[in-house]
Amino acid sequence: MDLRFFEIYRRSDYLLLLLEGAALSAALTITAALTGMALALALSGARYARLSVLRHVAAAYVEFIRNTPLIVQLFFVAFGLPTLLGYQWPFWAHALLALTLNFSAYFSEILRSGYATVGTGQTEAAAALGLKPRQTFFKIVLPQAVAKTYPSLVSQFIFLFLTTGVIAEIGVNDLTQAGKFIDSRTFRSFEVFFTLTLIYILMSLSFKGGLAVLQRRLFRWQVAR
């Protein structure tokens, strides 16, 4: 047993590859989190729709996503849909769509739990001032729900980030793909994937740090308490 990390670390082309992979992983995760959040907003809203079909469809969608593996969803989005509908996108676009669909289900459940924490006093006061339900939702309920569930949203985001390595399976040049490439050249699998693990952890910590800063920025009223 000999550990030879230097075989990776002394090669600037490998390091660059890892850096590029990490950047793509981060970019895709962050973008998917934003689009997923937008979809989650619609999904969580649909759960309160007057039309019962809409409520059921949203609930079924969320349950289905949460109870099936990401990789199956990913392969369906990357290989199933394009053959069925006859389109071809770049790999990263398939990955982005799959991650968006996946993230949205988890986020929408968290949002929903957040809405429940905003008291009826708040909505009643808003109604008494003449605000319409839509305005009440966006101006009063949503900001408070996001603030209350922010820690859950952050840990869910980190958790989802750790699963994004599967997009390498459809050919996206993410961090995992970079690792697989270096592994195929060096056969130093343990060193490569241990390094990758550390990079993933480091990135998680950076996300956590960044999102904590954002929290203090966004929810000054809460920290002031």
Binding site: G121, Q122, E124, A128, L129, I140
Partner: peptide, 16 residues
């Protein structure tokens, strides 16, 4: 409701 203001026992200030 814009013609009739109401103030509640719980102040219902919007905290954010």
């Amino acid at each position: 409701r814009t013609k009739v203001g109401i103030v509640f026992q719980q102040f219902n200030a919007f905290p954010h």
